[in-house]
Nucleic acid binder design. Sequence first.
DNA 1: GATGAATGAGAGTTCATTCAT
DNA 2: TATGAATGAACTCTCATTCAT
Lengths: 211, 211, 211, 211
Amino acid sequence: MPLVTGRERRRQLLDAAIWTFARKGFRRASISDIVARAQVARGTFYLYFDSKEDVFLAIVEDFHDRVRRMLEEPEPPVPLADHHGRALLQRTLRRWLELFAGHRDAAQVILKEATSIDPKVEAGLRRLRQLGLNYFATRFERLQARGLVNRGVSPDLLAHLQMGMMDEAVIGFILPEPRGDVDALAAQIASFEWDGLRPDRSGTPAVPRNV
Amino acid sequence: MPLVTGRERRRQLLDAAIWTFARKGFRRASISDIVARAQVARGTFYLYFDSKEDVFLAIVEDFHDRVRRMLEEPEPPVPLADHHGRALLQRTLRRWLELFAGHRDAAQVILKEATSIDPKVEAGLRRLRQLGLNYFATRFERLQARGLVNRGVSPDLLAHLQMGMMDEAVIGFILPEPRGDVDALAAQIASFEWDGLRPDRSGTPAVPRNV
Amino acid sequence: MPLVTGRERRRQLLDAAIWTFARKGFRRASISDIVARAQVARGTFYLYFDSKEDVFLAIVEDFHDRVRRMLEEPEPPVPLADHHGRALLQRTLRRWLELFAGHRDAAQVILKEATSIDPKVEAGLRRLRQLGLNYFATRFERLQARGLVNRGVSPDLLAHLQMGMMDEAVIGFILPEPRGDVDALAAQIASFEWDGLRPDRSGTPAVPRNV
Amino acid sequence: MPLVTGRERRRQLLDAAIWTFARKGFRRASISDIVARAQVARGTFYLYFDSKEDVFLAIVEDFHDRVRRMLEEPEPPVPLADHHGRALLQRTLRRWLELFAGHRDAAQVILKEATSIDPKVEAGLRRLRQLGLNYFATRFERLQARGLVNRGVSPDLLAHLQMGMMDEAVIGFILPEPRGDVDALAAQIASFEWDGLRPDRSGTPAVPRNV
DNA sequence: GATGAATGAGAGTTCATTCAT
DNA sequence: TATGAATGAACTCTCATTCAT
């Protein structure tokens, strides 16, 4: 029996690639860097991946799997309360941010190195993105149907905006800092999304001039 | 007098680079591609730019200038109305989206090729991003001070979320389609931001279960 | 086991570079020329040398080693004779000239291509030159101490003059001809050095006019 | 009438080239460097010289002229003395070294950048070298004929050795120092050449062993 | 004569990929 | 499976030279 199975060797190379791409970027990282990190020979890389592009695609698909598994995981019930919809939203955002916080190198690669590499990679990224968009859109739709969310905005647009905010929150607050307070971040975003910017829900604002 | 001035030749090469990077990506685009597009010799490129990285930086800075000029432009007054703050917000978003819609190739390059290229390029992108963040943060702060916007969220976080939504809106709705309805898009985003997701501002939602 | 070891491949490339530089000069020789001579691919060159400058430095250092090994080699005793010092000198010159005659391409490169290439190369050439200068200076000093050589001239200057004569003898009489009589050349140089130009060691020259 | 004549402009460019080649070497110096030094436009260079190689050849020939003029200059008589031949030799060496000391940049270019550039340049350098060799050979021959110099060595070989010593003296003692004592240098070299290394012109050295 | 923007051949170098061991 | 020396296409960049003004 070999010391490492094929599965393990592949994982080892994949992690080395994630680590390398996160630090050098796809373009500047070389196969040499990856195999040096993985402590295997150059040729070994090509036993598990077809090309440099292929290992990038594998990273995307690996992350895709993680997202899918997270989304499929059953969620613990939220205590019924006044702002039930908001609590659900906040929990979702937290789980989403936690996933990225738990895999910062991969997140870095997916979010910041997702440059035009290859049609196949492009497709993989599109699928990953679509997974998120579908999830959020379906979710908003259901919440609207149940009267838990304002029906005035299209679930599809909402999903896009949600994804944009998530990306930016990860890039701006999770990737740079070793320990961001994910909980607080999710709470604040949920708060903004739930209540909106309108200052006073009853009265008229007092004589505003142009800014 | 030469047929083209140095300024024009530089612009010509810059536009060729934008066009090329938007289609092939920074990595796959070669200097040969750029000069072929610009219809000049290979060496001419190096009279105006130091390197492939340098021309990318120039693109970023060119776009930076456009954004700055747009932000400095005086805005026509918004008719005083019930939802004054919302109207102001919507107008800002529209102008922002219009700028990107008016320079789709450049937007594509900035938003999708903003990969790790070079420390200098990195810095340039950071400056561009900061320009937007500062603008939105200042704006929200002022509107809050004037009572036109809910004081419950930090202007800084708001700015980040706003930028995330803008990026995603551009990537999702402006870059793919030749003619997106920018006005409608701005209106919908403003609507979501203004009112939030809360379904009913008075009553309690009716017996929701977990989603 | 590969057909050639790394050591051999390096030597093969080094020899090809010596051959090429000797014929085309550093400037006009291209990496293509070198690898064509060595019958390997272009990239192989860069497995063994960092750059074109680096291989030149390697040539210099390779020759440095040869000179050092020659100088360290024990010399067979010279039969005690009337002109003991002169015999020692002649033998040294012969060995020196033989080394260059035995590696004419390298000598050509070292002596005629020793142009300003690189600070590192410059330093390497300086070390090589210093090796020779030190050897001759030490030698003269010892011979003076033992009373075998005229004490009227500084060993340091003597070393420089000796080096100059050697360089010129190699350039003028060894590099151009496939088979120069190294022995006779060494004998004549030693003769000149030993006896000097003074025509008659006792009498006064007869009524010389200006030349 | 133009501000500068063609002759002057050519000289200006020639001096700029000497200055540049002395500092950067032929290979690393560019036409840009030369015209920048001469403060003229790039194209102007090509009105006076055919190519980069051509200007190098012009430098060689310019120096050739200087050497020739010096050699043709009548020499002041040397006071008749005991060592008449030695005094003549010393004066010649001094004049030779003075020429190089008076044109250090050109000397640097001729002696250290005289790398393989071009067949034409090669030929020019050969002519320059031959000028010196002929001069010394003729000189030694005449001195031998007049009994002022030892007849035991061939004038031709002597000329080569003399040139080698001159080159080395210039490289080692004149080029590096702003103010070398040319007189003393000439005196020491003449001393070595005149008297040789033989320690004692009458007795036998006392029982020397091998070094 | 003088200019300097434009040229483009050609250089050195990189590195993803292969394959004999 | 694993290795790593070898490959060579493709790249960026330089710079001597030209020529319309």
